[in-house]
């Protein structure tokens, strides 16, 4: 059986065709680099994603500050993690890299601030 994947690891977005036998990959074609094969393997076992969102910033010039995950998490956990993140608040000033949630839900990824924001003086 053949299955098609769009690799999301880099902007090339290679269309990869994987030949499968049961759960096993017999061959992959279409990937422009090695990461493509690894991506397909992961999609078959446990698809993972990262995402970004914002949290409320108190005492800053902007009402929000952006955050992201440092590592991909299982795809089906996106909404649970998103909800948890939205319950957080940050106090200005904040700096890029500051950790908002460590090892979120035990999934091995941190949630970090992605923007510097000063206090509103």
């Amino acid at each position: 059986m053949n299955r098609r994947f769009t690799c999301i690891v880099c902007p090339n977005g290679c269309e990869i065709t994987a030949e499968l036998d049961g759960g096993k990959i017999v061959s992959v074609a279409g990937a422009r680099c090695k990461k493509g094969g690894a991506y397909v393997r992961q999609e078959l076992t446990c698809p993972r994603r990262t995402f970004s969102t914002s949290i409320i910033l108190e005492g800053g010039k902007l009402p929000l500050v952006s955050v992201r995950l440092t590592k991909p998490i299982p795809k089906e956990k996106i909404f649970a993690v998103n909800e948890l993140i939205h319950r957080q608040k940050a106090q200005a000033p904040v700096r890029i890299g500051q950790i908002v949630l460590e090892n979120v839900l035990g999934l091995g990824s941190d949630v970090i601030i992605t923007k510097n924001a000063d206090r509103l003086s």
């Binding site: 769009t6 690799c7 999301i8 690891v9 880099c10 902007p11 977005g13 269309e15 994603r49």
Partner: peptide, 8 residues
Amino acid sequence: GLARNVEQ
């Protein structure tokens, strides 16, 4: 847009 964005 890029294929990866359609996907993710």
